[in-house]
């Protein structure tokens, strides 16, 4: 009996010595995969932020209305808005950036901070980020500096529900220091509001490692400027490794959050949308 026990103990010890170690993840509270492949959903910002030291260069481009027909090559000949942007990751949770849009010759400066990251362990169920943007129109019109300013503030609440689906809900406020009252072609008074409040809703559905479908809806809640509508965009993200291309149809030809919320005046379901594209390229420094 004693010999049997010794034999058993020896086998046990030898087998323990030869056993593999348990494989353990280095960080059980690591963040989930990025909710969006780029820092923009389409027209508005996404909860995805840059890593520290990363420089992101973006080009946003929105053409004229598709409904303008073949003679305008479905909007390509129309007036296009373009925004060039540079954003830099100061920390893994903090980025700063600036951009310049063709419409109204707007320069905008922004800060985005991720205050909470969704984790795979579920210890944090949400991704939470805040964005602040200040726009300065530089059209020569005699306005004072203060009159030229516009602002956007976004609280982005995102969640990855599965490997494929991520959703973001973003209460947003937009404010323009200067607004106008005018008459339209029919003689009706058109009055703009200084402040708009809305809740941007966005979703990303990954088809595979290369393609994802993205939708974005930016409804205004409460008072709004006359003749404006809620912006709607539908697009495809293409992840090429290094670049992210976004091809989309959108009602909005405005390319900052405050303009998209307050100035959109085309109705997606009336066929008034345009196509556009965004290109994002990230460099490391």
């Amino acid at each position: 009996m004693r010999i049997a026990l010794l034999l058993f103990a020896s086998i046990l010890l030898v087998s323990q010595a030869a056993a593999q170690m348990d494989r353990q993840r280095a960080d059980p509270n690591r963040p989930v995969d990025e909710l969006f492949w780029s820092t923009a959903v389409i027209g508005t910002s996404s909860v995805t932020n840059l890593s520290a030291g990363d420089l992101n260069y973006s080009i946003k481009h929105a053409f004229g209305l598709v409904s303008s027909g073949i003679e305008n090559l479905y909007g390509v000949d129309g007036s296009a808005n373009i925004r060039f942007g540079l954003d830099y990751g100061v920390r893994d949770w903090l980025s700063v950036g600036m951009g310049r849009s063709r419409f109204d010759k707007v320069y905008d400066f922004r800060v985005k901070a991720n205050v909470l990251r969704q984790t795979v362990s579920g210890s944090s169920p949400l991704e939470v980020a805040v964005l602040g943007d200040v726009g300065i129109t530089t059209i020569k019109n005699g306005f004072s500096f203060t009159d030229r300013l516009s602002y956007a503030g976004m609280l982005m609440l995102g969640r990855r529900f599965s490997d494929r689906l991520a959703v973001q809900v973003s209460p947003t406020v937009a404010h323009f220091n200067t607004v106008f009252i005018a008459r339209d072609g029919d003689g009706n008074v058109v009055e703009e509001e200084n402040t708009h409040i809305g809740v941007a809703v966005a979703a990303n559905w990954r088809l595979n490692e290369l393609f994802a479908v993205v939708i974005e809806y930016v409804p205004v809640l409460g008072g709004r400027s006359d003749n404006t509508t809620d912006a709607v965009s539908v697009g495809v993200d293409i992840e090429t490794g290094g670049h992210v291309f976004q091809l989309f149809f959108s009602t909005s030809d405005w390319l900052t959050e405050q303009h998209m919320l307050a100035r959109n005046d085309d109705d997606f379901f009336a066929g008034d949308f345009r196509w556009g594209f965004n290109i994002h390229r990230t460099f490391a420094f």
């Binding site: 170690m21 494989r23 960080d27 840059l50 890593s51 030291g53 490794g241 290094g242 990230t282 490391a284």
Partner: peptide
């Protein structure tokens, strides 16, 4: 383990850092 010459190594691949966050995700 020298007595039985066992060699056992593993690496959590998500800890690899290439110096570019976007590239790490890719």
């Amino acid at each position: 383990a020298l007595p039985d010459s066992t060699v056992d190594f593993y690496l959590d691949l998500e800890t690899l850092d290439t110096g570019n966050g976007k590239r790490d995700k890719d």
